[in-house]
Design a protein around this nucleic acid. Sequence first.
DNA 1: CTGTTAGCGCGTTCAT
DNA 2: ATGAACGCGCTAACAG
Lengths: 340, 340
Amino acid sequence: MTGRRPATLQDVADAAGVSLATASRALNGGTRRVKDEYRERVEAAADRLGYSVNSSAQSVALGRARSIALVVSDIADPYFSQLASGAFRAAARDRLVVTLAMTEWDPARELDIVRELRGQRHRAIILSGSRVDDEDAAERLLAELLAFESEGGRVIVLGRPGLPFATLEIDNAGGAAELARRLSGLGYERIAVLGGPARLDAARSRVGGLVTGFAAAGVAVDPSLVVESDFTRDGGYAAAGEVLERIADVDLVVAVNDVMAVGAMTRLREAGVAVPGDLAVAGFDDIAMLRDVAPSLTTVRLPLEDMGERALVLATVEGRDPVREVVSGEVVLRDSTPSR
Amino acid sequence: MTGRRPATLQDVADAAGVSLATASRALNGGTRRVKDEYRERVEAAADRLGYSVNSSAQSVALGRARSIALVVSDIADPYFSQLASGAFRAAARDRLVVTLAMTEWDPARELDIVRELRGQRHRAIILSGSRVDDEDAAERLLAELLAFESEGGRVIVLGRPGLPFATLEIDNAGGAAELARRLSGLGYERIAVLGGPARLDAARSRVGGLVTGFAAAGVAVDPSLVVESDFTRDGGYAAAGEVLERIADVDLVVAVNDVMAVGAMTRLREAGVAVPGDLAVAGFDDIAMLRDVAPSLTTVRLPLEDMGERALVLATVEGRDPVREVVSGEVVLRDSTPSR
DNA sequence: CTGTTAGCGCGTTCAT
DNA sequence: ATGAACGCGCTAACAG
C-alpha cells in the first residue's frame, strides 16, 4: 500500500494514447489548442489514474511556483490571524497556495525564513511582522529580499516603512496622535502608556504619536509613566502591574495594541481596580475579540482582514510599480473611556 | 534589476572549481564526505553568489518535498490559530516548511484543497477541521487521502474519528459528559445547549455527551432547548438570542465551544441578563482569550498548542504504525458557573 | 573522496 | 494540431 508511484503525466499520455506534450497541453496548458476528442480522452485517463500534477516539477520547468509566502510574527496573535485570514480568502480566489512562516518576533529567525523562502521560488513574499531593530539582521534581510526580487519574485511589506518594495504602510503615529487628541478631549490628562518593546518599530511609532498628540492638546505625558514590555497579552498584563504602583498619578492607560490592553484590563480587574470607574483604558488595532470584552474597549480600528486581502492582491498583480499605500486607522471611542 | 537568473548549483560548482556533485554534497548532502578545503571553497562561493537551493528542484529529484500541509477551517478562529501556532513551533525545530490551507468549513473546498496538496508532494497532510457530513465529498476525500498515502505521504487526522490514518482524537463526548456531571453537581438542572450545526461531527458529539452526562445525573435536557447555529462566535451570539426568549426555563447555557460561549455572553450582557447572576454559562476548548473575559468561563480544557505540536511530530515520525491517540479534555470550573 | 552520468516530472521549442 | 527532443536544477548511483 505504501509503495505505489504517483501517476505521472507520461502515464496519462500513454493511457490516453497521445504524446506527453498533448497531455500537458490538455491538462495544464493555458492555450487550448487541443482537439476536443483528445482533450476528453486525456481528462478521462487522468481521472481514471488519479493523476495530480507534480507542482514541484511544474515549478522547476516554469522557473517559479504558484505560491505566495506569508511571514507573520505569531499566528496565535489575533492581529496576525485576522490578517492571514484575509490573505487566505483572497488566495483561494486565484487558486494560489499560501505558505505561512512564523518568526516569533526574532530577527534572526526572520532572516533564516526569508532565505529559505527565497529558495522555494514563490511568486511573492509578504512580510507582515513589524520591524525589529537589529542593524546587522536588517541589512542582510534587505540583501536577501533584493536578491529575491531581482530573480523575478515580488516583495510586499505590510506595516514596516522604509523598505524599497511595494508597501502597505500603517499610519501608526497618525492614528495614535488622533486617539490622544480625542481622549484628551474627553478630559484625560494623567496618562500611562504601555509602550511595548522600544526596539519594535510599530510600538515606538505609536508611543511617539500618543506623546505628540497629547502634547498638541496641552497634556504632557510623564516619561516615567511610559512602561516598556512585550508586544503581547502577557506584556500588557505585566506592564499594568507596574502602573498599579503609581495608580494615584494616572487616570488613563493607553496600550499600543489591543492584546496588551486586554491583558492590562485583566490585571486591573484582578487588583480590584474598576475600568472605567477608577481607570480608563484604550488600545490599538480593533481585533475581533474586542466585540466580546467588557467594558467595550476604545481603540484605533485597522481593517485587518482587508489589509491581508490587499497584500495578497499586491502580491499577484503584475505591475512593476513600487506601490505605496497608507492605511490609516479610525478612532473608535467605547465604554472603556467615558467622558470625565 | 528584474531579470537576473538565480544562481544555480552549477554556478557555485564552477566558481569553486569543483564538480556539481561535490558542491551538492558540500551544501545539501547529509553525509559530510567532502574534504574540508573543498567544502569551504564551495561554501564561500555559494555565499558570494548569494546561492539558495531551489527546493522545487530538490523535491523533484527526491520525489518529495520538505514540507507539511496543515488544513484548518478558519485560521482566525482561536482554536485553529493556537493549534497552528503549536504546529509551527514544532516545524521550526526540524526546519520544515508548513503550507496552510483554509476550508472555511466547506467540504467541497476541503476536497479541492487536499487534491491540490497531493500534487505538492508534501511529506504529510494534517487535517484539523472537524468532519462535516457530506457523503459524496467524504468518500472522495477518503479516496484522495488514500492515494496520497499510497504514494508515500503521511496523513494525520486531528479531531475527526473514523478515518484509517494516524489520528489524534478528541474525546468530545467524554469531556462534555464530565462537564455536564460537574455542572449538575453544582445544582444546575434547567439546561439550554448552544449546539452548533448538527452536520458537524464535533458539535454533535459534544451535544450528545452533554445530554448523556446530564441524564446520568438525573437531569433531562429539554430537546427544544438545544438550539442549532454556526460553530462560530456569531453563531453563539445568535443562538443566545433564541435562548433569551425562554429564559424563564433556563438556569445554565452550555455552548459546544468557547467562541460560541463568549459570543453568547455578549448577547446576554446586551440584553441586561447578568452572568452568572441570572444565568450561568459554560463553553468548551479553553482558548487563550478566556483569560481575559469576565466573568471567567467554565470550560473543558484542551491542550491546543500541544496538540498542534503533537500532530506535527506524528507527521514527521517514520513509523508506519497507524497511531491513534486520544486527547481528553479537563473540566475547569470558573466564575461563570458558581454553585447554586 | 571526487567526478560523470542518468534520471526526477513537466513545459516548451522545433519540426512535422 | 500533434509529437520528439531538450532543458529546468538537483540528487543518487556508479566509476574512478
